[in-house]
Every structure is written in C-alpha cells, then in structure tokens.
Amino acid sequence: MNTSPVIEARDLNLTFETNDGPVQALKDVNLTINKGDFVSFIGPSGCGKTTFLRVMAALEHPTAGTITVNGMTPDEARRKRAYGYVFQAAGLYPWRTIARNIKLPLEIMGYSRADQDTRVEEVLKLVDLDGFGGKYPWQLSGGMQQRASIARALAFDADILLMDEPFGALDEIVRDHLNEQLLELWARTEKTIAFVTHSIPEAVYLSTKIVVMSPRPGRITDVIESPLPRDRPLDIRDTQAFLDVAHRVREGLRAGHSYD
C-alpha cells in the first residue's frame, strides 16, 4: 500500500469570534491521513470534528498552523478538484432528476456532454442506483437519496471523499446497509475517506484510523489505528477485536469529558 500523506495538519488552530467572545473550535490539531485511509472523526457535539472537515475542504480557514491536502493548500486542492464533499442531508435539487443532480458538479466544472453522460452511468452503478437516473429525488427513499449524493461527490474523480455525518439522518437498518456498501465502494475505488460520525459502531466498523475528539477546546484526544482487516463483513462487529476497539474509543470519549 502506498502510504504517502494526503492530508497533513500541523498545530492547527481555529478560533471563531462570536458575540459571546472567542470560541476555540480547534486547538493544536496534528494529524496525518495517508492515501487510501478510511479515517473517522468521532466525538460529542462541539468537538470540532465537522470544523476540521470543513478546514480540509477550505470552507473554513485556520487561524494558526498549517494544513495541506495533496501537498497543496485546501484552496488550491479545491480548485484542482481534489475532494468530493458529502453533507448530512442529501441536498439534491428537487427540480433535477437524479442523473441531472449528479451532473451538477460536472456542468459547473465544464465537462463535455458526452463525458457527463458516461460518468453519470458509471457512478450510478457504483452506488447501486442503476436505472434510477431519470427519477426525481422525491421518488427515492432517504437512503437512496444519500447514495445519489455520494455518487454526485464521486462523479468528478476526486480521490478524497469528505463525509460529514452522511448517514446521521437515516435509521439504523438503512445505515448498516449503507455502511457495508460504502466499504465496498471504498475498496473498489481506493479513495481516501474522511468520515465524521456520532456513532461508535459506525466509526469502528468503517475505519482504518479512528480519531477521537473532545470539546472546549476542540482537540484530538486519541488516534486509534484499527487492527481489523480491510475486508469486513457486517458480523465482524460481534468479534472480540471489534469490541476492544470500540471499548478504546469509548474510553477516549470519556477521558475527553472527564474535566468538563
């Protein structure tokens, strides 16, 4: 496995100026994400996990420290189309069919018509939505809509996928299914994935690396390299190795809260 760093954060700090005074969303964050990693960020609300993801995407800018994405600043990386971003809500345009929703980034980035069509076909297959291109979002279930939004993020060949609680609004049964599919998709496409979640089982099941964060100020309290194999059936969640990792995550979360 090639292990060149894709994302590198050094002494990253970010302070929001609010009416109640400054809020430190990120404090002295150091992290390296290697190519092909599946990294989960877990922690309670306000721990800065989403903020960190937004910094990678250049949606927020750090007040101190450095971060590089593919060796570039996040802004440059965005212009080079280094990443696709998946939000908590699918955010599909109700006036566009699924296929045309997936075309949205391609239109904006100026791909040719023919190229757009072949890419839409490809990514629809990738997320198992073959044949749904002509449907409108309201005709699809919540899980299918979220898959369509993942397809939209994959359509333009970004090798990094930034996912902000993409399955947070879905029920657990659908979420299990999508987790399985996401792992499959990750194995097939060899993307680097940064994934924000609230769920310990989800983080442990999906990740090669789990970043545990805690709030006030937002910081990293533990980074766990998962000992689980890359090939993971759903029932791996009943094994001792899985439970051990989950336990360590829980410990890390508790430690972060201890001096609240």
Binding site: A57, L59, Y83, G91, Y93, W95, L104, E107, I108
Partner: peptide, 27 residues
C-alpha cells in the same frame, strides 16, 4: 447554507450559483 457550501466545494461562480440554484429554487 449547506446548498451554498456544496457549490463552494465545486468552486462555482456567483453566476452559476444564480442560474443553477437560486433561480430555480425561487420559482
């Protein structure tokens, strides 16, 4: 805000944001 952030991740111009998102959404 999420819709606008999504367009930012595509580095979309203001004009693209208007024609592709704001105008259809206002119908």
């Amino acid at each position: 805000a999420m819709q606008l952030d999504l367009l930012r991740t595509y580095s979309a111009s203001k004009a693209q944001g208007f024609w592709k998102l704001r105008l259809p959404a206002s119908m």
